[in-house]
Amino acid sequence: MSPSSSSPAVSERLARKASRHISERIIEATLFAAAAVSIFVTVAIVFILVRESVAFFQQVPVVDFLSDTQWTPLFDDAHFGILVLLSGTAVSSTVALAVAIPIGTTIAIFLSEFASQRTRETAKPILELLAGMPTVVFGYFALMFVTPLLQELMPELPGFNLLSAGLVMGIMIVPIVSSIAEDAMRAVPMALREGSYAMGATRLQTAFYVVLPAAVSGIGAAYILGIARAVGETMILAIAAGMQPKLTFDPREPAATITAFIVQVALGDLPHGSIGYQTIFAAGLTLMLFTLLFNILGFWLQRKYRERY
């Protein structure tokens, strides 16, 4: 090929390349803008949470907030012990996870390693339906169905209690845990399973000795997401657990959680800038810090296991 015949072709190709660069840059800019908006929104939320919380902590010392054992922000004798709300959140979340983690993991193992294609195709939409149900429905299910059922077994159980709300919340979280854990297990390469079968392992042995450990970081992520969902759940608790703030670790008692308190106050008509109004933000900030903590934990777990593999 002579240089004269090749050089226009080259410059033409370059020109086309340049124009492709422009369209690529537009796409890049759009994607960047989308990312920037979400970051901006997050920063704005954190900013407002922190600003209102700072105003709150100017009136209520942080020490009182963390150590007081009463939560009566709207009374004349106001107390602001966040532990009260945290205990409600902790108890209801623990009950929920005690349901969701074992059931969700079992379902994930079954669907990924044992179920036929057809069973899986039937089961997944049903689980997704469960996940897509409005939480109000779960709330009333807890209050009107599960609580009376539990009262048959425990006659002294009050009409509002953390146990019933936690159990139903657990059922609600099952699909989240099972679907993410199942995805993680299905992503385990077939070569690993074949290696295990070739050694004479059964399906059960393959699932527990090879697939589960190979999928551990994804399963961990599923649990963390389940925890985040439980800690943040509002409606079920507001409906079925009662809204009396109470420092308790007994799931049979009624109690308010952070989220339940926030809706309760937000639904009332508190004036802007009042201390009652600001408590929502302090409580919200606490909730956010906890969720952040779990996310960091999840991130750390994932990194740790990825390093080991």
């Binding site: 390469p189 070569a191 690993l192 074949e194 290696g195 295990s196 070739a198 050694m199 004479g200 392992a201 059964t202 042995q205 000795y209 090879v210 450990p213 190979a214 551990v216 593999y309």
Partner: peptide, 21 residues
């Protein structure tokens, strides 16, 4: 197999996998 497919376990646990099973 064609591609090495060790299990996500220790060297020791890999070798004795058949015995465990």
């Amino acid at each position: 197999f064609q591609k090495p497919n060790p299990f996500p376990k220790s060297i020791y646990e890999n070798v004795i996998y058949g015995q465990r099973v």
